[in-house]
Computed example of a mutant assay.
Amino acid sequence: MKVNSWAVCLGAFLAFLAITLMTDNIKWGFITGLTISVGGFKWIRIKRKEAKEELEYDERVNLNILQSSLYVYSGSLVLLLSYLIVSSQILNNISINIELLTWYLAITLFLGFYIVPSIIKRR
C-alpha cells in the first residue's frame, strides 16, 4: 500500500475532527491528530530510506545535524530557564501555563528533530 503525505495529513485531520467531536475538547483532538501525523511521517521516512530513495550522508553531515539540534535544544532551555529565573527572582511570581509550556516543548522538539535536520541536509 502506497501512503503519501496527503493521506497522512487527511488521516490526522479526520482523527482530529472525530476525537474533538466525540470528547467536546479540542486538546484531545489535537493530540490525536499530532500523534497520527508524526507517526505517519516517520513511517514514510523509514519506508523511503528502505527503498533507498533518500541519499546517504557522511559523518560530517550527521555531526552537523547533531550539533545544530544541540544548539536548538540548548537555546530553548536557556530561554525557558531565563524566564523562570526572572519570574521567580525579580517578579516574585511564577505563573506558567501548562498548555503553553507543552506547546513550547513540542515546538522545540519539532524544530530539533525535523526542521533543523532537513535544513542541514539540503545545504
Rank of each mutant, 00 (worst) to 15 (best):
Glu53Gln: 09
Leu63Ala: 07
Phe30Val: 11
Tyr71Leu: 15
Tyr83Ala: 10
Tyr83Asp: 02
Phe30Tyr: 10
Lys49Val: 03
Gly75Lys: 08
Asn25Thr: 05
Gly33Pro: 01
Leu21Asp: 05
Glu59Arg: 07
Ser69Tyr: 01
Phe41Pro: 10
Leu84Pro: 01
Gly40Val: 09
Ser76Glu: 04
Leu34Arg: 03
Ile36Cys: 00
Phe30Trp: 10
Lys42Leu: 15
Val86Leu: 08
Ala51Gln: 09
Tyr73Gln: 08
Ile31Leu: 14
Tyr73Ile: 14
Glu54Asp: 11
Gly29Ile: 00
Leu80Ile: 09
Ile19Glu: 01
Ile26Val: 10
Tyr57Met: 02
Lys52Tyr: 12
Leu70Met: 14
Phe30Leu: 15
Ala51Gly: 05
Lys27Met: 13
Gly75Glu: 04
Arg60Tyr: 15
Ser88Phe: 06
Asp58His: 07
Gly39Asn: 06
Gly39Gln: 04
Leu77Ile: 07
Lys49Arg: 11
Gly75Ile: 02
Leu77Asp: 04
Gly33Glu: 04
Ser87Trp: 01
Ser87Lys: 00
Tyr57Asn: 06
Lys52Leu: 04
Tyr57Ile: 07
Gly75Ser: 02
Lys47His: 00
Asn25Tyr: 05
Arg45Ser: 15
Ser37Ile: 13
Asp58Ala: 07
Lys27Trp: 12
Leu66Asn: 15
Asn62Thr: 06
Ile44Phe: 00
Val38Ser: 05
Thr32Ala: 15
Leu70Asp: 09
Asn64Lys: 08
Leu84Trp: 03
Val72Trp: 01
Asn62Lys: 15
Leu63Glu: 14
Tyr71Ser: 12
Leu63Tyr: 11
Glu53Asp: 11
Phe41Glu: 03
Glu53Pro: 03
Ile36His: 05
Val72Gly: 09
Asp24Gly: 10
Lys52Gln: 12
Leu34Tyr: 10
Ile44Tyr: 07
Gly29Phe: 04
Ser87Glu: 03
Arg45Leu: 14
Ser76Leu: 12
Gly39Thr: 03
Ile44Asn: 11
Ser88Arg: 06
Leu84Met: 06
Ile46Cys: 03
Gly39Ile: 04
Leu70Phe: 14
Thr23Tyr: 07
Glu56Met: 07
Ile31Met: 06
Asp58Ile: 05
Leu55Pro: 11
Ile44Val: 07
Leu79Ile: 08
Ser76Pro: 02
Ile26Met: 13
Ile26Ala: 15
Glu54Thr: 07
Val38Cys: 13
Ile36Lys: 02
Ile65Gln: 05
Ile85Gln: 00
Ile19Gly: 03
Leu70Asn: 10
Gln67Ala: 14
Leu70Arg: 12
Ser88Ile: 05
Ile36Phe: 10
Thr23Pro: 02
Phe41Met: 06
Glu50Lys: 03
Ile19His: 04
Thr23Gln: 02
Ile26Asn: 08
Glu56Thr: 13
Leu70Gly: 11
Gly33Val: 08
Thr32Phe: 06
Glu59Met: 02
Val38Met: 13
Met22Gly: 08
Ile65Met: 04
Ile46Glu: 15
Thr35Cys: 13
Gly29Arg: 00
Thr23Ile: 10
Val61His: 03
Leu81Phe: 05
Gly29Glu: 00
Phe30Gln: 05
Glu54Pro: 03
Lys47Leu: 11
Glu50Gln: 12
Ile44Ser: 01
Asn62Asp: 11
Ile65Phe: 01
Val38His: 07
Arg60Gln: 13
Ile26Leu: 14
Glu53Thr: 07
Ile85Arg: 01
Trp43Asn: 11
Ser68Gly: 14
Phe30His: 06
Leu21Glu: 10
Ser82Ile: 03
Gly33Phe: 08
Glu54Lys: 04
Gly75His: 02
Arg60Gly: 11
Ser87Thr: 04
Val72Thr: 09
Lys42Val: 15
